[in-house]
Simulated assay, not measured.
Amino acid sequence: MNTASASPAERPTRTLVWDAPVRVFHWLMVASFAVAWLTAESERWQLAHVTAGYTMAGLVAFRVVWGLVGTRYARFTAFVRSPWTAVDYLMVMLLERRPQRHTGHNPAGGLAILALLTLAALTAASGWANYNELAGHWMEDVHEVLANTMLGLVALHVVAVVASSALHRENLVGAMIHGRKPVPRAQGIRSPWRSVAALLLAAVLAFWWLQWESAPQQPQPQQERAAHRHKHQGH
């Protein structure tokens, strides 16, 4: 009995799915949010907190543009689905343990990305308004609520990634590092667009350097003692 074998284009292999700009964006956003969260209550690290917030805002702007003109699975049209589609995906995955495979983001993950981008933009905007004292103390509360909501969604996203990795038997975290997934070659993207990723990384690093260079210098202990003696001599 003869069986037809799949063509090379139809056999699952390690195929490039996530371009370099998406991957660089993802990990820069992770780092920026972590820094912003860890420095939120520290006066000493306020510049780091503000810099991380501005970085998040810039990254969101880049992701919106790349979601319109980027590669196949980076575009919003590839993963933005209705809430009912996301609910159906989750029901099948959780109740029937028969997850639907998606080369790019699944419907639930797509909505989570939209929510995270929206929360990141709102959190950065409220932080900017609060930092520049454009509103009363209520803006500080709004900023804190948005940041806490984003933290909760990030935690839920991590749990979902771990669960999906186990059910699909594939390393989704690793895929966001090297960009490849076990799918037929025909479903992959043609170019990783490393040049765009390099420009994005260079822009962020340059911004961080400018923020560091423009930071007010902290007085050294010897300078503090000299200023203290000068003050008392003046009296």
Results as ranks from 00 to 15, higher is better:
71 T>Y: 01
209 W>D: 01
93 M>I: 00
44 R>T: 13
19 D>R: 11
15 T>I: 08
231 K>D: 09
115 A>G: 12
17 V>M: 05
125 A>N: 03
129 A>D: 00
98 R>Q: 14
162 V>P: 01
63 R>V: 09
200 L>F: 04
74 A>N: 02
136 G>E: 04
15 T>S: 13
192 P>K: 04
175 A>P: 02
77 T>C: 06
167 L>E: 08
5 S>P: 01
198 A>N: 03
157 H>I: 07
176 M>F: 07
178 H>Y: 10
149 T>F: 02
164 S>A: 15
70 G>C: 09
15 T>L: 09
113 I>Y: 09
160 A>C: 08
31 A>V: 13
131 Y>L: 07
180 R>M: 07
229 R>H: 08
90 L>E: 09
128 W>Q: 03
70 G>R: 03
196 V>M: 05
165 S>L: 05
141 D>R: 10
75 R>Y: 08
46 Q>N: 12
65 V>K: 05
177 I>P: 06
234 G>Y: 05
131 Y>P: 00
91 M>P: 00
172 L>V: 09
167 L>D: 05
30 V>K: 01
214 S>A: 14
188 G>M: 04
81 R>N: 12
227 A>G: 02
189 I>R: 01
58 G>Q: 06
196 V>Y: 02
43 E>I: 07
142 V>Y: 00
120 A>T: 15
138 W>P: 00
136 G>L: 10
223 Q>Y: 00
83 P>M: 08
168 H>I: 02
2 N>Q: 11
200 L>M: 14
167 L>A: 14
199 L>F: 07
171 N>M: 07
79 F>H: 06
25 F>A: 10
63 R>N: 05
91 M>N: 02
217 Q>K: 06
115 A>C: 09
9 A>I: 10
35 V>Q: 01
178 H>N: 15
153 L>H: 01
27 W>T: 11
147 A>I: 02
